[in-house]
Nucleic acid binder design. Structure first.
Lengths: 294, 294
DNA sequence: TTGTGGCCATAACAAAATATCATGACGTTA
DNA sequence: TAACGTCATGATATTTTGTTATGGCCACAA
């Protein structure tokens, strides 16, 4: 006769921290979630495990007994898991990721991947050009483009959405209000994305403003860095700049976002079976993406 | 870092029984369910825990290691749960159940209740008349009737559905085909359900066939028992006779089931809060009912 | 006292995990 | 070669778990 295991685990944490709220933080769920899990366990046992009163909770004698006995069991599971995962000497999953995507999206989310699949090691390289699976030892790639490449399966992650961005300071100082104001500030370009400015200006019917004389950087990451520092106005990929836009280190200009027929895609070779690790990564990527869409 | 616990438990059972199929039986789930749980765990660890080959499975070295380490942990959890549940000295939930319902529906399902709520003890009494919560020490009752009783909350379980039933042997021997054939066999009555035959015959417009001279029993359970033995034809509550109808010890006659405005209800007193145990029982009852409806 | 904030519970609803059924692949056995 | 036993997979349903919003209760501070 086993009790429901997830509630039991929640109980163990809660008993250790002496608080539903702190247990919720520890488990990264909401406080009501903990409350319900404990109730489930209490219903199973038929008696209360915590006494609730003003300002907090206390273990009942039964709860204390339970805690004392099961804690070591969880420690054991934890330890053996740790050890087995660490001993897993299998080959890492080789990812090749479009540079800006890696810097602005993937890296901050890697801890979530390791938590979900601690046994999968990643070897990440980055590049801008499309991958050639015949020449490069890569299992899965994330690249930017139109979505049609020969010999690969691809899955759309998100579309390219462009709009000029700069630091709030520059916007104020240079008093940037209408597109014409662009004449007064340096345009920041990226080597690998030479047409971004032209595309956007074209969509606004203001190709005349294009100014090749601006500053050019070897990577979008640097371009955005320069924009953040107030060096000039960059043409930004809005999806990848959400953090900067949210915390205010960058602001959008002129309210005319342009969506292009280009996007970030996950791609993998058509002619060999996708390794299981790669499927796991894809599954994780999809779930992170669906959070990201909102 | 904890692995997903339910998959871990499924793994433990599977490793012990050396078979997905047997583990599924043991856990009372389908074989694909086990297959998927194991996959979840394997994805988490990043390596296989079982080697699959012709005619079965074998633990991989990692799987064996995992099994060896976590098995004791589960044994501990099992033992302490067992002990705590046994020590739970709290008052039993007092149920008062309509006699036939208890015999033909509840009893065979009690193990499922104990499995879900091992900490809740039941004290079951049975009777036919509606309960009086003021006089009887009862938390929750299951009774039969129209659904309106003063001072109680009630929740419909299933409606009353009547049709004549007898043993297959009697049907053959007495050659029972049309309603008129009822003249040739004893009608079996229940003391507490005197109008069942009359109600059914009335609905068929054949009240003339009513024969008070048949045999009368002090409980429907005995009436059905007599019908099973081939003593005569009883007027059966189809929902409560499903087992008998399925295994062929009783058969229905004349294809004219009658649904009446009476039903089995769960009832509890309006004026005091329903104890938590009783809520658990109700929750269980609802879930068993929704299975039963199909 | 009257906010204000910390704590847990509950209801309504959304999302995720888990189960099922139906079926397939593959090897064994009669 | 057909029938069976084993595990895997796709489509789909169900159950479990989680979230947000809200409420009650108490303590503490203004």
């Amino acid at each position: 006769m086993l009790p429901p295991l997830n509630p039991l685990h929640v109980f163990e944490v809660t008993a250790r921290l002496q608080s539903f709220t702190r247990a919720a933080e520890d488990l990264r769920v909401s406080q009501p979630a903990v409350s319900r899990q404990i109730q489930t366990l209490e219903n199973f046992f038929g008696f209360r495990l915590f006494e609730r009163d003003k300002l907090g909770i206390r273990l009942t004698p039964e709860g204390e007994e339970l805690q004392r006995q099961i804690s070591p069991a969880f420690r054991v599971i934890e330890t053996v898991t740790q050890r087995l995962v660490a001993s897993g000497k299998s080959e890492p999953l080789r990812l090749r990721v479009y540079t800006t995507f890696a810097a602005k999206w993937l890296i901050e989310r890697l801890p979530s991947f390791y938590a979900a699949y601690p046994g999968i090691r990643l070897s990440i390289s980055n590049a801008v050009a499309p991958v050639d699976f015949e020449k490069e030892k890569v299992d899965l790639a994330i690249q930017f483009g139109g979505g049609k490449w020969p010999g690969v399966e691809s899955e759309l992650l998100f579309r390219d959405l462009l709009q000029p961005v700069c630091s709030p300071t520059l916007r104020r100082k240079a008093n940037l209000h209408s597109i014409d104001d662009l004449k007064r500030v340096p345009m920041l370009h990226s080597h690998y994305r030479r047409t971004d400015w032209a595309d956007w200006l074209m969509a606004c019917n203001r190709l005349d403003l294009l100014n090749d004389a601006g500053i050019s950087f070897p990577s979008s990451v640097l371009t955005y860095q320069a924009a953040t520092e107030g060096v000039g106005v960059a043409i930004g990929q809005l999806h990848l700049l959400r953090n900067e836009l949210r915390d205010g280190s960058l602001v959008t200009l002129f309210e005319q976002p342009l969506e292009r027929p280009l996007a970030h895609y996950a791609v993998w070779p058509k002619n060999r079976p996708l390794p299981k690790k790669a499927r796991s990564f894809l599954a994780w990527l999809r779930s992170r993406m669906s959070d990201f869409q909102r």
